[in-house]
Simulated scan of single mutants.
Amino acid sequence: MAVNPPGAPTLNGDLLTIHRLLQSPTQLERRLRTLKDMKFVADRILKQKYRTRGGSLLYEVSEGITTTRPIQAVSPGSTYPYATTQDGQAALAAVQDWGQASRLTDAAIKRRVRGGDELDRVLRKLLNTILIKVDSLAISAVASAVNRTLDATTNGGAWNGTNPNILRGLEMAKASVTDLDQGFNPDTVLLSTEMYAFMVSDDRVTNARRRETTDNPIYDGEIEIIDDLIVVKAPAARLPTADVWVFDSTQLGGMADEDEVDPGYVVTEMGVQVQNERIARANSWDIWARRPTVPVVVEPQAGVRIINARS
C-alpha cells in the first residue's frame, strides 16, 4: 500500500486553540489585558474608587472641611469649646448592570480571514460598547453636577477666536476652584477632541513649548499635560456641550463598582467583567461583558465649567 502524503494544512489547530482559550478564565483575562487601547475616560475624571454591596451607595455631597465655628484663644485652665464637623448632604446612588452579549460561532473561527483573532474582534466590540455607555454616564454626571461657570469671553477669549489666550483661561479656571479655600487642587481638564484641536494648534501654546524635542505635538499630535493639568479628551458626541471642564479629579468623585463578583466572571483592570459559555447544540460560544457601576460626584465645587470657549 502506498503511503499517502500528509494532508493540506487546516484551521483545526486554530479552532482548538480558541476553544482552549475560551475554556480558561486565566487565558481570557490575559487576552483582555492585551487590548491596551480600551481606556475609560470615566475612570480618569472620577478617580475615586467606591465599592458597594447590595446594589447601592450612600454618600455625602459637598462635605465641609472645617468645623461649624471659628477657632478662638483658650485661657489657661479653661476647657476647649466644642464644635461640630460639617456633614454633607446625604445622597443615594443605585448601581446598574451595564452590559451585553455576543455569539461567536465555530464557523466564524474556522472560516473568517481573521482566524484566531476573531475572539479579539468580539471582545473589542463588547468593550467599546461598554466604554461608550459608561463614559457617557460619567461625563453627564460631571456636567450636571458642576454648575459653577467661568466665561471664556472675559477670561482669555474664545479658543477658536482670532487671538485667544488659552493658558490665561485655564489659570483663571484653576484659581476660581482654588480660591474656594476648600482644599481643592485642580489637576485635570476635560474637553472635546475639537476643543483639543484648538488648544494644540494655538500659537501661544505651541510657542511656549520646547521646540527641539519629540514630545512636541508637531511630531506626535499629543499634549498630555498643559498648565499642570492632565488633558483628558473625549469625542464631542459624548460631551453635552462644547464647554471645557477644569477640576480636582482626586476630590470630584468616583466610580462605584459592585465588588461582589458572581461565579465564572473574569474581572479586568478596567472594572469590566467577562464570562463565556459553550453552546454545544449551536456549535458556538456566548460571550458577554458587563460593568456593574454608577458614577458618583461628591464634590461639585471641585470643578468649574468654562463656557463660551467655542464662539
Rank of each mutant, 00 (worst) to 15 (best):
264 G>H: 02
268 T>C: 11
209 R>P: 01
245 W>N: 13
283 N>L: 09
198 F>S: 09
256 A>Y: 01
274 V>K: 06
202 D>V: 03
223 I>C: 09
234 A>M: 08
271 G>L: 09
207 N>P: 09
258 E>R: 06
199 M>V: 13
202 D>T: 07
168 R>Y: 00
263 P>W: 02
262 D>Q: 14
280 A>I: 15
238 R>Y: 00
169 G>Q: 14
272 V>M: 11
171 E>D: 07
176 S>W: 04
180 L>C: 09
254 G>V: 05
174 K>Y: 00
244 V>L: 10
224 E>P: 02
190 L>D: 09
195 M>V: 15
207 N>A: 12
268 T>L: 10
271 G>N: 05
271 G>V: 03
188 T>I: 14
268 T>H: 10
179 D>Q: 13
271 G>E: 03
269 E>Q: 11
176 S>P: 03
198 F>C: 06
206 T>W: 00
230 I>Y: 03
177 V>P: 04
165 N>E: 04
266 V>I: 13
172 M>R: 14
213 T>Y: 00
191 L>V: 03
249 S>W: 00
253 G>Q: 07
219 Y>Q: 14
287 I>P: 10
275 Q>V: 11
201 S>G: 12
278 R>N: 10
242 A>Q: 13
216 N>M: 03
166 I>V: 11
261 V>T: 06
238 R>K: 13
177 V>S: 01
214 T>M: 12
159 W>I: 07
254 G>I: 05
169 G>V: 07
271 G>W: 04
244 V>D: 01
203 D>I: 05
275 Q>I: 05
187 D>M: 09
257 D>G: 05
279 I>Q: 15
166 I>N: 05
284 S>Q: 12
158 A>G: 15
190 L>H: 07
285 W>F: 09
250 T>V: 07
248 D>R: 04
191 L>H: 05
255 M>W: 01
214 T>C: 05
282 A>F: 03
222 E>L: 14
167 L>P: 02
156 G>N: 12
210 R>K: 14
174 K>F: 00
276 N>S: 15
266 V>A: 04
248 D>F: 00
171 E>H: 02
211 R>N: 12
190 L>V: 06
276 N>F: 01
182 Q>R: 15
279 I>V: 12
166 I>D: 01
282 A>E: 15
174 K>C: 09
253 G>A: 08
230 I>S: 06
181 D>L: 15
201 S>M: 08
231 V>R: 00
192 S>W: 02
192 S>L: 07
272 V>R: 00
190 L>W: 01
260 E>W: 08
228 D>A: 11
245 W>C: 12
254 G>P: 07
269 E>V: 02
171 E>F: 00
287 I>Q: 15
164 P>I: 03
193 T>S: 11
179 D>S: 11
166 I>P: 01
176 S>T: 04
170 L>K: 08
284 S>G: 10
219 Y>T: 13
193 T>F: 01
225 I>S: 07
203 D>G: 05
266 V>W: 01
239 L>K: 09
263 P>D: 14
221 G>R: 12
202 D>I: 03
170 L>H: 01
201 S>Y: 02
175 A>T: 13
223 I>F: 02
160 N>A: 10
282 A>M: 09
154 T>F: 02
249 S>D: 01
228 D>L: 02
154 T>V: 09
202 D>H: 03
219 Y>L: 08
250 T>H: 04
273 Q>P: 06
181 D>E: 11
227 D>M: 07
155 N>G: 06
236 A>Q: 11
218 I>C: 04
285 W>Y: 14
239 L>E: 04
246 V>G: 05
